[in-house]
Amino acid sequence: MNHRKRVQVYDATLRDGQHAVGHQLDTGQLRAYAEAADRAGIPVVEVGHGNGLGASSLLIGRARLDDAAMLTTVREVLTRSRMAVFMTPGWGTGAQVRMAVGLGADVVRVAVHCTMSDVAERHLALVRELGAEAQAVLLMSHMAEPARLAEECARLVGFGAQAVGIMDSAGTYLPQEVEARIGAIVRAVEVPVVFHAHNNLSVAVANALAAAEAGAGVLDACARGFGAGAGNCQIEALVPVLRRVGYETGIDVAALFAAADVAQERLMPGGGPVVDSVSVMSGLAGVFSGFRRPVLKAAQEAGVDPLAVFVELGRRQVVAGQEDQIPDAVRTVLGAAS
């Protein structure tokens, strides 16, 4: 096969997947999947609380394990794969970045709101100082136009980011929208461009493929799509699709299928993510996928339609960390129904 280019696929199962289980993965689960991912030759395995370093809290969910325990568990079993961590300034701190790199994190991905690249400057400099690979991604990227995203990514490169890109945090993109945004960023920077898809509208693999065709060099995915809301791009589908259209990932597909089976059996015995009406409405409303669990809980307790709550949250343009807006949105829906 004539491979046009090589694309790196990052595995976020042990980080983004935490959203699907209330951040309750234990050491045995982390170890079992990390070993399987390593056998498959997945280049980078990301681990931690769903919202990253320092995010374990009453507001967004306390993790079963602290950050150090999660990182130590995974680092011990990775022999081929590099280990990555995710952090958002405000939840994560410089001290936690130092801790993560000290425990063997090879890649630190700093995430900021799509129009707030300045927030990442200090943390990117620290990651470079510590000798780890510094990446930066823009959250809720649908809230900015392609030109603005390209501008913000160029600034992040100026701050020291060695890879930059966008997250479809709400799972709201269609392939042509991904192509426009990734293409604009690729033209603006000379470092690898990252794309992270969610599957609310059931097009995560198509969106990731569109990103690759537009020039992205790093694609995020999860086993069985394990992740927030309707889940992420499904890694065991993405890798063979990429190979079919001429991209090389270096991942052993047979071992990848086995790793996905491990994820199904060990991480999600109650079943994996599904694209249901709530997921679709969340994507259409542009609401962060991690809001699914708290919205469903609050709506059920109040006896209101969760779809209406997502519409109200979308109108407010809420972002991760604003879970305290959910009760007020529920009250607004109740008021409108009375």
Rank of each mutant, 00 (worst) to 15 (best):
R6L: 10
V21M: 07
G22M: 03
Q24A: 01
L25K: 05
T27F: 00
L30G: 13
R31Q: 10
R31L: 06
G41M: 13
L53V: 03
G54Q: 09
L58Q: 14
I60K: 01
R64G: 12
T72P: 09
T73N: 01
R75W: 14
T79K: 15
R80A: 14
V85K: 10
F86I: 05
G92T: 11
Q96F: 12
R98A: 10
A100C: 14
V101L: 08
G104L: 12
R109F: 04
A111H: 05
T115F: 10
V119G: 07
G131R: 07
M140N: 14
M140D: 13
H142P: 03
E145K: 14
A147V: 02
L149T: 10
E151Q: 04
E152H: 08
A154S: 14
R155N: 04
L156H: 10
V157E: 04
G160Q: 02
G160K: 12
G160S: 13
Q162S: 13
M167W: 09
T172S: 14
I185M: 02
A188D: 02
N199S: 04
L201H: 00
S202T: 00
V203Q: 00
V205L: 02
A206S: 03
A208E: 07
L209C: 07
L209R: 05
A210H: 10
E213W: 03
A216M: 04
L219T: 10
G227W: 08
G229Y: 07
G231F: 00
G231Y: 04
C233P: 13
E236N: 07
V239H: 05
R244P: 01
V245P: 06
G246V: 01
V253E: 09
A254W: 07
Q264W: 14
R266Q: 14
M268V: 00
G270L: 15
G271K: 09
G272N: 13
V275I: 05
V275F: 04
S277R: 15
S277C: 15
S277Y: 14
M281I: 15
S282V: 13
F291M: 00
F291R: 02
F291N: 01
R293F: 01
A298R: 11
Q300V: 11
G303Y: 08
V304D: 02
A308M: 08
V318Y: 04
P327N: 12
P327M: 12
P327F: 11
A329I: 13
R331T: 08
T332E: 11
L334S: 05
